[in-house]
Design a protein around this nucleic acid. Structure first.
Lengths: 231, 231
DNA sequence: CCACGCTGTCATAAAACTGTCACAGAACTG
DNA sequence: CAGTTCTGTGACAGTTTTATGACAGCGTGG
């Protein structure tokens, strides 16, 4: 099942553009062009996120936003405001009324998608899935197994947790300290460089057989799963 | 580079605690223990937020707050007051003088971090955002990546921070000294001309493939992102 | 008690990045 | 236009950061 996006936008040019591109990105897109309809559709379609134009016929986007927040059924749905205005004051009003983020037209699709994902991550408390995948890598918490391209990968407990941590947010860079906190726990002390060694061990296990390394080293910062990697 | 916090606090016990915990939370923390120093450091370090102790030697926190508001350079920086007093009257005075929030000692780190983030969101949504864009350039703090026209740009740590600094205020001209303060830090000494070299490196990386240079050199002054540039 | 798998630390080598300098060229000045 | 000031940049030596093999300690199961 894919992520459902509700687009509230009255300009056809923009809504078509959005529908086209977001569909291509794998989202399930519904478009409405007016505020009252938006409120109704939000209720029964239950989108995962709403993209809300600021300027709408009849009711302003900000008012929609306020009303969405007032109803139990729609309260939790994150909202990104789309607007031509970049003024500070407007931005503040948007956040005040409960917008989760704010995108100024014109925007790039890349930016929009990144923001959608960021907001969803923030709003969506841990997807407690047993099976997590990243490219051709699959990690199963239940069986404590990791596979790459269907082939079994043998990991020690520490490497397993390390991968488990990294895979939660592919692309995000974790500092050695953050990894120590998350993988080793906050109370125990180990050298930061120990992380390097375990990253090395994880790499060796994961890339056995000459596969491409999916782990990115970010100098002076830490490590991340390379989000541009496609298994 | 992460969010910069300036802590103004004269009690070592507390400032150490703050520095330790906030650093662990991913903030970049600078501590000063006296008001006059705070004003100076705020100017060149340009923190994203200031945690200000109410009781300080020489000058009171509230006075610092007032003076911060009086200067263009520091006016926009949000302030959270730290105080042992919880009386309504003090709280009002704090807000009157321009504090954005108010935390009463003793406080939990969790609470403080939550308030910092709330204040940052309110005061400056862009600074708290992971993704900053300028024209066709996008800088993502979470993944530590920079792209131009969707294409990945490889930067060293220093060039990354340099761009991060410039992109905060496109168009603003930064002197070499200001860039040294903000990008390199206040305590270390390097030649001003070193900035030129890194600007050169940033340019080379950013414009690879014959793209237009978005960085403007302002003779005898410094550098800026060219606000007339449209990606 | 031993073998074994796993761990954390270290030493060392390799890689990546940094700051400076020198010089060429560009931009100003009068 | 000649003189002066400022900027761009290739080269380079030095430094910082990362990768990795080696090793000793630990706990478990035999």
């Amino acid at each position: 099942m894919s992520i459902k996006v509700l687009v509230v936008e009255d300009e056809d040019a923009i809504s078509h553009l959005l529908k086209y591109n977001l569909t291509a990105e794998g989202f399930e897109v519904t478009v409405v062009d007016d505020g009252d309809e938006a409120l109704m559709v939000a209720d029964d379609f239950q989108p995962d996120i709403i993209l809300l134009d600021w300027m709408l016929p009849n009711v302003s986007g900000i008012e929609i936003c306020r009303q969405l927040r007032a109803r139990a059924e729609t309260r939790e749905i994150p909202v990104i405001m789309l607007t031509a205005r970049a003024e500070e004051e407007d931005r503040l009003r948007g956040f005040e009324k409960g917008a989760d983020d704010y995108v100024t037209k014109p925007f790039s699709m890349k930016e929009l998608v990144a923001r959608i994902q960021a907001v969803l991550r923030r709003a969506n408390p841990a997807a407690a899935a047993n099976l997590v995948t990243f490219g051709d890598i699959a990690l199963d918490r239940e069986t404590m197994r990791v596979t790459r391209s269907e082939a079994n990968v043998t990991l020690g407990p520490t490497e397993f947790r390390l991968l488990e941590t990294l895979i939660k947010r592919p692309g995000r860079v974790y500092s050695r300290e953050q990894l120590l906190d998350r993988v080793w726990g906050q109370d125990i002390y180990v050298e930061a460089r120990t992380v390097d060694v375990h990253i090395g061990r994880l790499r060796k296990a994961l890339n056995k057989g000459g596969l491409v390394d999916p782990i990115r080293t970010v100098r002076a910062s830490g490590y991340a799963l390379d989000e541009t990697y496609t298994g």
